[in-house]
Amino acid sequence: MSWRIHHVSLPTRDVRETAEFYTEVLGMAESSPPWKDQDRGEFDIDLAHVAWFQGENAQVHLSRHSRNFARDNNFHLDPIINGHVAIEVDDLDAVRERLRRKGVYFADPGNWALSGLDQIYVLDPALNAVEINSQLK
């Protein structure tokens, strides 16, 4: 299976302070999140809650945790509370099938947050949240 790191999501209490570290100390440029359906106001893109850094081949997301994220987004797990790594694969349906065969629960919101991506979320055995995504066909 072909895979690559798509992004790493890091939780933070103060998004702006942490974003300043990434821009001022590490020299990274902050960019706009490519939210799905942002014109409909479906996602809170208040810059106090999220910061986005687009690199050449991967992204870093900074997010402030919300107590009700899972409930408000109809998720059975919260990928923000402790952060997550996002792995992009070429065949997400094959990953779904392997998870089902192994009896591993995964949240399957489909094209939920990020424009152009089909997304699923799973907890690994150490309870790390992992997003697995692929480009929509």
Rank of each mutant, 00 (worst) to 15 (best):
R40N: 12
S9H: 08
T18Q: 04
S66F: 01
D14A: 12
S66H: 05
E56Y: 01
P109N: 10
S134E: 11
N73D: 12
V104R: 06
W52Y: 10
E30R: 12
Q59Y: 03
I45T: 15
V122W: 01
D90R: 04
V50Q: 14
A58Q: 06
Y121V: 06
H6Y: 06
A58V: 04
L62R: 13
I45A: 14
A113P: 05
I45S: 15
V95S: 04
I45M: 10
V130S: 02
P125Y: 01
P109Q: 12
D37A: 11
R96D: 07
P11Q: 04
R13Q: 02
K102S: 02
D78H: 07
P125E: 03
P125Q: 05
I132W: 02
L123C: 03
V25N: 10
G41I: 05
H49Y: 02
R40C: 00
L127N: 09
A19D: 01
E56C: 08
D91F: 03
F106D: 06
G55S: 06
P125R: 00
R4I: 04
I5K: 13
A51T: 10
S66R: 14
S32N: 05
A94E: 14
P34H: 00
H6N: 15
Y22R: 11
W52E: 10
E88I: 09
Q119W: 03
I5M: 09
G41V: 03
S32G: 14
G27D: 08
G41C: 01
V15E: 07
E42W: 03
N74V: 00
F106Q: 09
H49F: 03
I81P: 00
E20A: 15
D78P: 05
E24D: 12
E20Q: 08
D44M: 06
S32V: 09
F106N: 04
V85Q: 11
Q38C: 10
V8D: 06
H7C: 08
R71N: 11
A48K: 14
A86K: 03
V95R: 00
D93L: 01
F53G: 13
H49N: 15
D124C: 01
K102M: 05
M1E: 13
Y22P: 12
P11H: 01
R16S: 15
W3D: 11
L99A: 09
S115E: 06
N68R: 11
E56S: 14
V85S: 12
P125N: 06
T18F: 07
A129K: 03
I80D: 07
V60A: 13
N111A: 11
E30L: 04
R101S: 13
D90E: 08
R13F: 04
D118A: 07
L114P: 03
H76E: 14
I87K: 07
N128A: 01
D93G: 15
L117F: 02
S66W: 00
A29C: 03
I5N: 15
A29R: 13
S2Y: 07
L47S: 15
D93S: 14
V60N: 10
S9C: 12
H49A: 07
Y105N: 11
G55W: 00
V130P: 13
R16H: 13
S66M: 08
D72S: 14
L92H: 08
F21D: 07
L10P: 05
S134W: 01
V104M: 01
V85H: 11
I81C: 05
N133C: 14
D44T: 10
A70G: 12
A129V: 03
N68A: 15
V95E: 01
L127F: 02
F43L: 02
P11S: 03
V50K: 09
D124L: 00
